[in-house]
Every structure is written in C-alpha cells, then in structure tokens.
C-alpha cells in the first residue's frame, strides 16, 4: 500500500489520545446546497432532529444559479458541532459546509427598526442612526423606520439604544458571511 515499508515498531496504547472536541463558541455555518425544492426543509429538519437550536438562518441564491447558500448561526456551547456537520454532509443535495472561524470571516446582517417617534424623539433617533450609519427608509407622523447593516453585535447595540424610545418592531435577516481573503467560502 504505502510508499515506505511498514516498520515493526509498535504503538503503545497509552499514547493514543482522543482528538479535541470543539465546543463553546458561537458558530456561523455556511452551507452550499443544490438549488432544488425541499433542500431547506432537509437541512432545517436535520438540525431540529439532532437537538440544535438555530439562532439565525438566511437563504439566498449565489453567483451560480444551480446552487443556493444557507447561512446559519448556532450556539455551539451546548453541543459539539462536529456531529451535525457530519450529518449535514450526508444530505445528497449539500455540496459544501464551512464552519467559519470568527476571526477569518466577515459577517453582516440587515435589520429594520420601526420606532415610535414624535417630533422630540425623532431627532434623537436620527442621531443614533447617524452614529450607527443607519438610514431612514420610512417616516410617518408617529413612526420612523431605520435600516441598519452590520454584525449582530452592532445591531443588538442599536436595539438597546432605540428600545427606550419606543421600539414598535424589529425585523432581522440573520447573518450572511464570507471567508476573508481570496479563497471561496
């Protein structure tokens, strides 16, 4: 089989160690799938069956019309993610899975905040929006809607700022992500 001949030195069983199990961090899992009906149900169902709670989920087309990208975030603290990625690989329509390293990843999320505003509070909201580089996309007499893009930390920070003003509702897309640098995700 191999190029080098087998040697006769044996291996002490006490030297055998288990590989470390990754657990504890939040995971952004990027899954490239075939663009076919039912694929999202297969992926989502698998997470549910294996007891994983999906925090966010974003699905969309890619540059290739035959594939779609599912990006989901998970709290990996409770379970090692290894088992679920192996199970995902077994789905025939799943082409590629990346458990993205946070430091080597750029992730963004879009959120819309509808805030109850009157003439006094609107100025305050606009100030926050400016600081967070948000954009006002709708204004009415009694409300203002701000669009914001960023990491989940940034969006949560903005939420904390505007909630006291009277947050009517917040809608988030869930994070999408790409690996940093030249390599494809």
């Amino acid at each position: 089989m191999g190029e080098e001949p087998a040697t006769q030195d044996v291996l002490s069983l006490s030297d055998l160690e288990l590989p470390g199990v990754q657990a504890g961090r939040r995971h952004i899992v990027s899954i490239l799938v075939e663009n076919k009906p039912g694929v999202l149900a297969r992926v989502a169902g698998l997470f549910a069956r294996r007891g994983f709670n999906i925090e966010t989920l974003a699905v969309g087309p890619t540059d290739d019309p035959t594939t779609s990208r599912i990006t989901l975030t998970l709290d990996g603290a409770r379970h090692p993610i290894d088992q679920v990625t192996k199970q995902l690989h077994k789905l025939i329509n799943v082409l590629k899975i990346r458990d993205l390293e946070p430091e080597e990843t750029v992730a963004r999320e879009l959120a819309l905040f509808k805030v109850s505003t009157d003439e006094d509070t609107r100025a305050q909201l606009l100030e926050f929006a400016d600081i967070f580089r948000g954009r006002v996309i709708d204004v009415s007499k009694r409300s203002t809607t701000v669009e914001l893009t960023g990491t989940d930390d940034k969006i949560e920070a903005f939420e904390r700022m505007v909630r006291p003003l009277g947050l009517i509702e917040m809608v988030r897309t869930g994070e999408i992500a790409v690996a940093r640098g030249r390599a494809a995700t």
């Binding site: 089989m1 030195d9 291996l11 002490s12 799938v33 025939i92």
Partner: peptide, 22 residues
C-alpha cells in the same frame, strides 16, 4: 454532493495495525 470515501487513510490504517500489534 455525494462522494463516499471508500479507501481509508493509509497513515491511519498503519497506526491501527500498530495499535493492534501492541
């Protein structure tokens, strides 16, 4: 999206043989 691994990693197989020998 479907490519079963069949051959087995040569180094791992060698390691397994050594463990069995011990």
């Amino acid at each position: 999206g479907y490519k079963p691994t069949t051959e087995g990693n040569v180094k791992q197989i060698r390691l397994a043989a050594k463990a069995m020998a011990n």
